[in-house]
Structure formats: structure tokens, C-alpha cells
């Protein structure tokens, strides 16, 4: 039984090698369940990219030439949902203070700054949309929330965004 399984597995691998690789599924698709996992580089990062050296100009510093200086590929950061980098977190805290003081444009500026650092952070869109709704701009509030929805991976946040969209639509209805 065990042997048959092994044989099957080996054959399966052989089939994959013969036929499956042409479609590069791993290039097009990142499994949702495992956001940290990503493509393993086919070339070890310590080695230069073949054919790229010829086109590299000399670095301007006097430091020894680092063949990997340009990093045409940086390994994705493990994206642990719900855990932000300290930089984004401090901007979010400052934006909360601005909102508390009713300095809405300042809050928007801070949240946009945070988005430049973490462009896929759907919660930042939620916050931005909330400020816009507070400011009486339900149209932009709804759109920003929709943007957040297209990025959201978190069920609770998903519901919050949909709720915000509903409120924005209601506000639009009141205005119109």
C-alpha cells in the first residue's frame, strides 16, 4: 500500500514536471490561506541576476560594489493581519488625535501618509472613509470604503466597511 502510494506520488511529480509547469500557477496565484508563503526565489538572492550586471552602472559611493544593490525583487514581508508596523501605527494614533480635535483635513493627510507606507491596509481606507463621512462627503466616503472592501481580508472589517457604505448611501439619499 505504502509503496503504491509512493509510486503514485513519484509519478505525479513526474507528470507535473512534464506537463504542469508550463502554466506557472505559482506565478499567478497566491493561496489566501497562507499569506506569508510566497514564491521561493529560483536564484539565491546572494547571487547576481544573470545578464543584469552589464547594464548596472557603478554605484556612486566608495563602498564595495554590492551585486544585489538594485533588488529588482524584494521578498514580500510576512503580512500578519491585524499587526501594523510601528510607523503606520503612530500615524494612525496621530490621526485619531486630529479627529478628536476636529482637524479633519490633518487627519486625512496623516492617513494618506500611512497609506503610502501600507497601501493594502484596508483599515486605513475605513478610517479615511469615516473622516469623509464625518465631513459630510458621503460620495467619497462610499468610494473609499469600496476601495477598502476590495482589499479587506478580515471579516469584521469587511462588515464594518459594508456598514459604512450603507451609512454613506443613506447620507447621500438624505442630501439628494
Amino acid at each position: 500500500m505504502l509503496k503504491r502510494l509512493q509510486l503514485k506520488a513519484a509519478l505525479g511529480v513526474a507528470v507535473l514536471v512534464l506537463s504542469g509547469c508550463a502554466s506557472h500557477p505559482e506565478y499567478y496565484y497566491v493561496p489566501e490561506q497562507d499569506p506569508g508563503r510566497d514564491l521561493k526565489p529560483e536564484i539565491e538572492p546572494e547571487r547576481p541576476i544573470p545578464g543584469a550586471e552589464a547594464s548596472q552602472s557603478k554605484p556612486e559611493s566608495q563602498q564595495p560594489v554590492d551585486p544585489e544593490e538594485h533588488y529588482s525583487y524584494v521578498e514580500p514581508q510576512p503580512d500578519v493581519s491585524g499587526q501594523r508596523s510601528g510607523g503606520v501605527e503612530s500615524l494612525v494614533r496621530r490621526s485619531e488625535q486630529s479627529i478628536g480635535g476636529q482637524h479633519y483635513e490633518e487627519a486625512v493627510a496623516l492617513l494618506e501618509r500611512a497609506l503610502r507606507i501600507a497601501p493594502n491596509d484596508a483599515d486605513l481606507y475605513y478610517r479615511l472613509a469615516s473622516v469623509r463621512l464625518q465631513q459630510g462627503d458621503p460620495v467619497q466616503a462610499e468610494q473609499l470604503a469600496r476601495r477598502g472592501l476590495s482589499l479587506s481580508r478580515d471579516e469584521q472589517l469587511h462588515d464594518d466597511l459594508e456598514d459604512l457604505i450603507a451609512r454613506a448611501q443613506a447620507a447621500k439619499g438624505d442630501a439628494g
Binding site: A52, S55, H70, Y71, S72, Y73, V74, P76, N120
Partner: peptide
């Protein structure tokens, strides 16, 4: 090629 460039996910 003069990255660093972030891969699409």
C-alpha cells in the same frame, strides 16, 4: 531592475 520593486500579490 533598479528596484527595490514589490511583487504583485
Amino acid at each position: 531592475s533598479r528596484g527595490p520593486v514589490e511583487s504583485l500579490r
